[in-house]
Each structure stands twice: as C-alpha cells, then as structure tokens.
Deep mutational scan, measured.
Amino acid sequence: MSRESDVEAQQSHGSSACSQPHGSVTQSQGSSSQSQGISSSSTSTMPNSSQSSHSSSGTLSSLETVSTQELYSIPEDQEPEDQEPEEPTPAPWARLWALQDGFANLECVNDNYWFGRDKSCEYCFDEPLLKRTDKYRTYSKKHFRIFREVGPKNSYIAYIEDHSGNGTFVNTELVGKGKRRPLNNNSEIALSLSRNKVFVFFDLTVDDQSVYPKALRDEYIMSKTLGSGACGEVKLAFERKTCKKVAIKIISKRKFAIGSAREADPALNVETEIEILKKLNHPCIIKIKNFFDAEDYYIVLELMEGGELFDKVVGNKRLKEATCKLYFYQMLLAVQYLHENGIIHRDLKPENVLLSSQEEDCLIKITDFGHSKILGETSLMRTLCGTPTYLAPEVLVSVGTAGYNRAVDCWSLGVILFICLSGYPPFSEHRTQVSLKDQITSGKYNFIPEVWAEVSEKALDLVKKLLVVDPKARFTTEEALRHPWLQDEDMKRKFQDLLSEENESTALPQVL
C-alpha cells in the first residue's frame, strides 16, 4: 500500500538533515546492470571481512566470479597478432551492500547512478522477487541517484539526491524531493519508509565518522582530508542543518603536550582565546566558526575552494607581477588587521594563504593565525623552527619566545613576496656552502639577476625593505602599504570589485 501522500506532506515541511535544493538533472540513458558494476546475484546478508577486503582492492568479489566451465583457453599460436591488451577495470570509489532480497550489490565505478523502476536507470528495480513485494509499487520510476562531484583539492564528494514520490531516507532522515545531501561511510539508505532499509553505503575513500566526538558529529558530517601540516590535519565537512561546506582543523593534544602547556602557563585558556579569535572579522582572514574541545581540538573554519598559494608557486613557478601585487596587498591588509588586534601570526607561508577560486584574479585569505593562542608560545615555536624557511632572523637566534615582536610577520611576508615574484625561495638548504640558518640570520638571500630583470624596481625595493635583518629597521605593514609599488588604483579597484562580488555589503578597509 502506498504512503505517498503521508511522505509528500513530510517532504513539504523539509528536513533537518544536511540537504539543499538542487537544479534539474539530465537523465542518464539506460545500460545493462552488469556493465555498471552490479553483481549478477542479489543478497540479503552483509559481507564478511574477506569479501570486503577483496573488493576494496579493486579485484572481483566472490559475488562477481564466473564459473571456469564457461571459459576456455586460447593457445598462444592462435592469439590474433593485432589484439590489444584489455584496459584494467577501474577501482570502485564506493560500494552499496544490499540489505534485502531482490536488490543486488553495487560497485560504484562510474560517477553517476540512477536507481528506480524505469529501465533507463543504471540500477533498475526489475528483479522478479522484488516485483512480488508489497513495497515495489511505492518505488518511483526514478527514485534517487548517487553521484560524486569534484571538491576541494581535486578530491571527490559523494551525494545522494531524492527524486521520489514516497521519499528517500539516509539514516532515517528524509532527504526531500529535489534535494541532495552528502553521503558518508556506513550510511543506511531506506526507500519509501524510513524503516525500509535497502542499502548500506560504503565510501571507500573516507574514514568512519565514529572516531570523532559526538558533539562534533551532531553538527557536522566529516568527509575527506584536505591537507595536513606540522600543526594538524584539515578535513572537509558539512553543516548538517545547511549542507554548507566547512573546513575542520584537528590539532592533536598529545603531539603538542597541550596539557603540560596549560600547567606551565595557567593563564592559557584555550576556550577564552578561541572566543576572541571567533570575533575577528576581516575579508582577508579565514573566519573561525566553531570550536570543540575533546581528546583533540577541532576548529571549524570557513572553507576556501581555490587551494593554497603554495600550489601556484611550487615547482619554480612565478606569478605575474600584477597578480603578485593583488595578492600581496590583501596579505598586508590581513596581517595589519591581526597586528591591530594584538595577534602575531608567526607562521606566514604560502600554505597559509588560501585562494577563493581558481581564477588568477581572486580574493585571498590568511589562515592559521591563532596557533600560539591554542598551542602555547613554546610549543608552537619548537614546531616552526623545524622548517625555518620563512622564519625571521630574530626568531632563530632567540631562546624560547623572548626578543621578537610583530616584525617577524613582515619578514615572512618579504619571503613570500620574493617567491611569488621570482619563482624560487630566497633562502634554501640546497645552497650547501652556507647553512639555512646562517643565510637567514645574515640576510644573504639568493639573488639571480636574469630572473629579477623581469621584475620592476619598485617591487624589488619593497622586497629589500622587508628582508632587513634588524627588526627595528624592517618595514611595518603600514609602511609597506604606503610603498610606491602598491599605489596602484587599478589594483585596488579590482580588489574592491572582487569584494563586491563576494558580498555587496563588504567595504574596502581604510588604508593610510
């Protein structure tokens, strides 16, 4: 008996699950189920560990084997000379395990699969056993689809999209007709009724959600790893209520002995410091949205989908001078704002400069500016000194954290500008005749005249004003913003236009 009217009423009120309206889709043409990776026989039982391990490696599972009696060998002398080797079968990115008779397991190899009674669906509900069930008529011709799209860092995100009359449910929550939600590992998919569980979705590319604290899981769906560094790992996640993407940084307390840091400095109150950081608001710094204190720290951040500045300059790639100017102007505005709010970044580098898009002209935002507030000064500097390429001379020669101030950030900005303009770092371990530390503390950077011949004198002058060993003589952010190279009204107008595109209400910060 159909429950279409009941569920449609529920759909009209929406769902609290991570779902959002989605535009129309072009329906895929039908194809045989076997060619799409559906096993030839149905099963109602969950797999054992041996079955799972075989399939996850990209080899055929026991459900897909063919009797050897149906095959015969071709003698080598009868092999056609022009026969080309077969292409290897792509490894599946996800697996659906059937929970009921009449449904088959599915190895997801393609990027898009339609499910329903219509014969054009890649996964067609046409098993005779299924057709005899009382629920068969409640399934729509095109009930739902599972697909994946390219996300940040060229990774993939799996989604389920509801197109049914009676509802598609993920972990008992209604997706909603015309809406989608991301699928995470071990999600249970039910059709027409929330208790009519048909599939379990296994994402073969992500970790299980159960490793994360419950308070975090209640608000966010964790997904793929976006990156990792000395101070922690960053994962893509989704807000459950809105389906908006965020980035979540995970900082290990054990790695940084944060408990010991608190004992050594009783004034170090991470929760208080995070609340201060959350109040920071500038178009060129990453917004801190939320914070969870569990076995590790979880910092929920605004997501930038254009990648890191590092990706644009790695491998001796240089940027156009006009692009360097647009990016560097924004970096200076961001660091100036942090300094005005009493925050020294201490870890400025291309990896911590994020881009809003893949376009050459785009907004940038500074991230990882609050680590000293979370990890403690000593722990952070011990970590950073392991990779000193961007560290100021006074940091390398000081004991502990004494003896330096916000000028350290201006040195790091000078190193970043040098790399963007030239395509190579000013200080490098590859210069074996002088140690990296000695290069930095003496201010002897690697200047290649033929490379810098293409760079304007004004740009080079600003680099020199920032890479000054004496912090008292080094340019401040205010002085850098007043430098002739940055007195470019076309560049500032472009920045204002980019801000307006992102948010019509965002105004250009005042600069002296």
Rank of each mutant, 00 (worst) to 15 (best):
R3L: 13
E4Q: 14
E4T: 08
V7A: 11
E8P: 05
A9S: 03
A9N: 10
Q10Y: 03
Q11H: 04
Q11V: 08
G14M: 06
S15Q: 13
S16E: 06
S16W: 13
S16N: 12
A17K: 06
C18R: 05
C18G: 10
Q20G: 08
H22R: 09
G23L: 07
V25D: 13
T26W: 07
Q27S: 12
S28M: 13
Q29R: 08
Q29S: 07
Q29V: 06
G30A: 11
G30T: 05
S31N: 08
Q34H: 06
S35E: 11
I38L: 10
S39I: 11
S39Q: 11
S40W: 12
S40V: 08
S41D: 07
T43A: 04
T43E: 07
S44Q: 05
S44I: 06
T45G: 10
M46W: 09
P47V: 06
P47T: 07
P47A: 08
N48T: 12
N48E: 12
S49D: 10
S50F: 15
S50K: 08
Q51T: 09
Q51E: 14
S53G: 07
H54T: 04
S55P: 07
S56M: 10
S57W: 07
G58V: 07
T59A: 03
T59S: 08
S62P: 04
E64C: 02
E70K: 07
S73Y: 14
S73I: 03
Q78S: 05
E79S: 14
P80Y: 12
P80A: 10
E81G: 11
D82P: 05
E84Y: 13
P85D: 05
E86N: 11
E87K: 09
P88K: 06
P88N: 04
P88V: 07
T89N: 08
A91C: 13
P92N: 14
W93H: 03
W93S: 01
A94Q: 00
R95W: 04
W97F: 15
L99S: 12
Q100A: 12
A104W: 13
E107W: 14
N110I: 15
Y113G: 01
F115P: 00
F115R: 02
G116Y: 00
R117W: 01
R117I: 00
D118A: 10
K119V: 15
S120H: 11
S120E: 13
C121V: 15
Y123H: 14
Y123W: 06
F125G: 04
D126Q: 15
E127T: 12
E127M: 15
E127L: 11
P128L: 09
L130H: 05
K131F: 12
K131M: 07
R132K: 12
R132M: 10
T133L: 14
T133H: 07
D134G: 07
Y139C: 03
S140V: 05
S140I: 09
K142T: 15
H143R: 02
F144Q: 00
I146V: 11
I146N: 14
F147T: 14
V150D: 13
K153G: 00
S155N: 13
Y156V: 14
I157M: 02
I160W: 14
I160S: 01
I160L: 10
E161R: 04
E161Y: 13
D162Y: 08
H163K: 08
T168Y: 00
F169Y: 05
V170E: 02
V170N: 02
V170A: 14
N171L: 05
V175I: 10
G176D: 03
G176F: 14
K177M: 07
K177A: 05
G178N: 05
G178A: 14
K179Y: 06
K179N: 15
L183K: 11
L183S: 02
L183A: 03
N185T: 07
N186D: 06
N186W: 06
A190M: 12
L191M: 13
S192A: 13
S192Y: 03
K197N: 02
K197G: 12
F201M: 15
F202H: 01
L204Q: 07
T205F: 01
D207V: 10
Q209C: 01
Y212H: 12
P213W: 06
L216M: 01
R217W: 14
D218K: 04
E219W: 01
Y220P: 00
S223A: 05
K224P: 14
K224Y: 08
T225Y: 12
L226P: 00
G227P: 00
G227M: 00
G227S: 15
S228Q: 01
G229C: 02
G229Q: 03
G229A: 15
C231S: 10
C231A: 05
E233S: 13
L236S: 01
L236N: 06
A237N: 00
A237K: 00
F238M: 05
F238E: 01
F238C: 04
F238G: 02
R240N: 10
R240I: 07
K241Y: 15
K241E: 09
K244S: 06
K245A: 00
A247N: 00
I248E: 01
I250H: 04
I251D: 10
S252F: 08
K253F: 02
F256A: 04
A257G: 07
A257R: 07
I258W: 11
R262P: 14
R262N: 00
R262K: 05
E263Q: 04
A264F: 02
A264K: 13
D265S: 13
D265F: 15
P266R: 11
A267P: 11
A267R: 11
V270T: 09
V270G: 14
V270K: 15
V270L: 14
